[in-house]
C-alpha cells in the first residue's frame, strides 16, 4: 500500500514539475517596450561611457522587484556584457554577461531583484564585441549583415525589437492572483 502511494506521489510530482517550476520562479512581465531604431551609438550620447556600450532602452519600472528584462535580439557568437544604469546618478545598478544562443529569439537577462523599483528610471546598455560583426544566418545559408559594427545586432538595426522588464511577485499568492487575472482576461473574449 505504502509502495503504491509512494509511486503515485512520485509520478504526480514528476508530471507536474514544469508547473511547479513556474510557481517557483514567480516571474512576470507587465508590458513590452518597442525598441526603436536606436541601437547605434551615433544617435545616442555616450559621453561618460565606454564607446563600445550601446544603449538599448531607457524605461521606467512599473512594479517592485525588477528582476530582469527579456530582449529580442539576433544571434551573436560572442558573450555580451550588459549594464543596468541609473540615468541620474550614472551608477551601475546591475551588470553581468550574457551569451546568446544560435538563433533569433528572446534573450533573458536576469539579476537579483531590485527592491522598491516601482517608478524608478533605468537604462539598459549592452557592450558588443566589435571584431567581426554579427552572423545572422538565414535558412538559405546567407549572412544577412556583412558589415555591422556590433556583434549584438540584426533585428535591432531595423528597429524591430521588444524589451520587456520582468518582475518577481512578492508572494506565491500574489503571483497566483496575477496569473489568474490574466487567464480571466483571455476568457473574456468568449463573453463578448
Amino acid at each position: 500500500m505504502i509502495k503504491k502511494t509512494l509511486i503515485t506521489v512520485v509520478c504526480i510530482l514528476v508530471a507536474i514539475s514544469p508547473l511547479i517550476g513556474i510557481f517557483i520562479k514567480r516571474e512576470y512581465d507587465i508590458e513590452q517596450f518597442f525598441v526603436p531604431n536606436s541601437f547605434n551609438y551615433d544617435v545616442t550620447p555616450f559621453a561618460e561611457l565606454n564607446k563600445n556600450h550601446y544603449l538599448v532602452q531607457s524605461f521606467k519600472a512599473r512594479a517592485d522587484s525588477l528582476t530582469g528584462v527579456d530582449l529580442v535580439l539576433s544571434q551573436s557568437q560572442s558573450p555580451v556584457v550588459y549594464e543596468l544604469i541609473d540615468p541620474e546618478t550614472k551608477e551601475i545598478i546591475r551588470s553581468g554577461e550574457i551569451t546568446m544562443k544560435g538563433e533569433v529569439r528572446v534573450t533573458r537577462i536576469r539579476f537579483s531583484p531590485i527592491s522598491l523599483s516601482r517608478d524608478r528610471k533605468f537604462e539598459l546598455f549592452l557592450q558588443g564585441q566589435t571584431a567581426e560583426g554579427p552572423h545572422l544566418a538565414y535558412s538559405n545559408g546567407e549572412k544577412a549583415c556583412k558589415q555591422c559594427s556590433l556583434a549584438v545586432d540584426g533585428e535591432i538595426v531595423d528597429g524591430n525589437a521588444n524589451l520587456t522588464p520582468v518582475y518577481k511577485a512578492d508572494s506565491l499568492i500574489g503571483f497566483t492572483k496575477i496569473l489568474f487575472q490574466r487567464l480571466k482576461s483571455n476568457l473574456k473574449v468568449y463573453a463578448k
Partner: peptide, 25 residues
C-alpha cells in the same frame, strides 16, 4: 504503463507551462 502515462502527463504539463509563460507571464 505507469512510466508511459507519467511521460505523457509530463509532456503535457511541460507544454501547458510553456504556453502559460508564452501568453500570461
Amino acid at each position: 504503463y505507469i512510466i508511459i502515462i507519467t511521460l505523457i502527463c509530463l509532456l503535457n504539463f511541460y507544454s501547458i507551462a510553456i504556453l502559460i509563460q508564452r501568453y500570461y507571464l
